[in-house]
């Protein structure tokens, strides 16, 4: 039971982080990004290749993060910004096309075999008594997830974050009072790419990733973001954790094949019953 719970919190942290990445981009750039998980996958695969070339672990981590940020900024500048005047749908389609293309590019360059990102602590586990042992990589996932969520929340309290909220609220007015919306959307995409890289890296240091990982990961990320109504950071984070736990419980007691369907059902129910996210009304005001 404890083991299941920890596994749930671990995968929940991945979902929550990816959900947060989606929400950040959604807030500042107004794009529902379906290519988020693929961006993280590309960054992680670059890191894995560098590690295989013999570079020290922390340098490869740094390189992965830099690739994630660069990819985000590049996609924003090259593809997204010119479309932003048309609204949601072409942007959404653009990210769907991008996710397909990025995934296939990864498949062409690195192949479709699952890979892992070996960390110094991979495979080490801590015994907590009662015959239950928890992997260090699981603890790393949960802690990094928590730190990431706090960092993003802090960021939105900063001056840049406040500008971002202003743009999300009303783009035209924000620009009138001197907010540089283009720079902000680049920053948001950079942060999104960074978080996506962290997410996939966390999954790769704990288990395996391959070109089929993003397909389910992005859905789970969107489930988490949906639970936060695409605006609430706390709702997204808690939603991601709950989703992870539910998913592990379903896998443990019902069937692993049902995990995906349950997640899809949750999205649908949340959207139909509480389109603003399940934390709406819990807090007085979510921007």
């Amino acid at each position: 039971m404890l083991q299941t719970l920890v596994s749930g919190l671990e995968s929940g942290s991945w979902f929550a982080l990816l959900g947060l990445a989606i929400v950040v981009v959604m807030k500042a750039a107004d794009v529902p990004n379906f290519a988020m998980a693929e961006m993280g996958l590309v960054a992680t695969y670059v890191g894995i290749s560098l590690a295989a070339a013999g570079l020290p672990f922390w340098i490869t981590v740094l390189a992965t993060l830099v690739v994630g940020i660069a990819l985000g900024v590049l996609i924003d500048a090259a593809l997204m910004r010119r479309l932003s005047k048309y609204g949601h749908f072409p942007l959404l389609l653009m990210t769907i096309g991008l996710s397909l293309a990025l995934n296939a590019v990864v498949g062409l360059i690195w192949g479709h075999d699952p890979r892992s990102f070996p960390a110094p602590w991979s495979g080490v586990s801590v015994s907590v008594g009662g015959g239950v042992s928890i992997g260090v990589s699981q603890i790393v996932s949960i802690v990094v997830g928590l730190v990431g969520a706090v960092a993003i929340t802090m960021f939105f309290r900063s001056s840049t974050g406040a500008q971002m909220r202003a743009v999300a609220e009303n783009r035209a007015t924000a620009r009138l009072i001197g907010v540089n919306a283009g720079r902000l959307s680049a920053i948001a995409w950079g942060i999104g790419g960074l978080i996506a890289a962290v997410t996939v890296m966390l999954q790769a240091q704990s288990s395996l990733v391959s070109t089929i990982t993003p397909t389910s990961l992005i859905i789970y990320g969107f489930v988490a973001a949906t639970m936060g109504g695409f605006t609430s950071l706390i709702g997204t984070f808690v939603g991601g954790l709950i989703l992870g736990v539910i998913q592990q419980l379903v896998g443990a007691y019902l069937s692993t094949a049902a995990q995906f369907s349950v997640a899809l059902l949750i999205v649908f129910l949340v959207l139909v019953l509480r389109p603003d996210g399940f934390t709406k009304g819990v807090r007085l005001r979510d921007v």
């Binding site: 479309l83 653009m94 096309g97 397909l100 293309a101 995934n103 590019v105």
Partner: peptide
């Protein structure tokens, strides 16, 4: 050619949306 086909679809979708609404 699974991957090339996917790239072609992805790119075509992107190009059409960007240039030929």
């Amino acid at each position: 050619l699974g991957d090339q086909q996917a790239i072609a679809y992805g790119l075509v979708l992107m190009v059409v949306i960007a240039l030929l609404p």
